[in-house]
Amino acid sequence: MRRRTLSIVAVVGALLGGAVVIQGADLPLPGNHIGYEPVQPIAFSHPLHAGQLEIPCLYCHSAAERSRHAGLPSDAVCMNCHRAVGATLSAVQEEAERAKAARRQPLPVVSSEIAKLYRAQGLDDTGQPVPGARVTPIRWVRVHNLPDFAYFDHRSHVAVGVACETCHGPVDTMARVRQHADLTMGWCVNCHRRANATGLPGGRPARASTDCSTCHY
């Protein structure tokens, strides 16, 4: 009997101790994927596009305004620019100089990453369709994953003026996109409470619901 009590105490103690350690060390709990930074099929650079070129987030992730999902741009959106832009300006200039030196027409310069986009579209480096090539959409790796029982609506947050970086962090500095915030329920609820207490950006009153059914249904 004493042994049984002891073992129960030991197990409970171990669990409690573990909880204290996790809390104290600020370790993420299971299911919290903060810092997740998967390798993407194309080394797309947010610092270049969003940072240097200052393309607005919503240019590519346009669904965030209208849908619960922010959405990834279809490959055709990339091609809006990359039909013309195949490499960095310096690479193009280098080739132009080389061509000038060799007295020939400059060759199309396509960086190895943009070449992947062209291949996915079934195009060659000059932007011409490759006969017989199949169009295979790029399979990006999703960084921000919510569990299936949680529903998040981008549209509502964009509509009230929550900035993208509030949740996604400084994406314009991330060479590879990384999960910036916890995306746990406590983190969501804290922000909602804060918004209700302090109001929305611009001082408007917030109606950030903390009902369970706001996200779980």
Partner: peptide
């Protein structure tokens, strides 16, 4: 968990 892939499509 295994990575979740998103294929937005070649042409939406």
């Amino acid at each position: 968990a295994p990575p979740v892939h998103s294929a937005p499509g070649a042409m939406a």
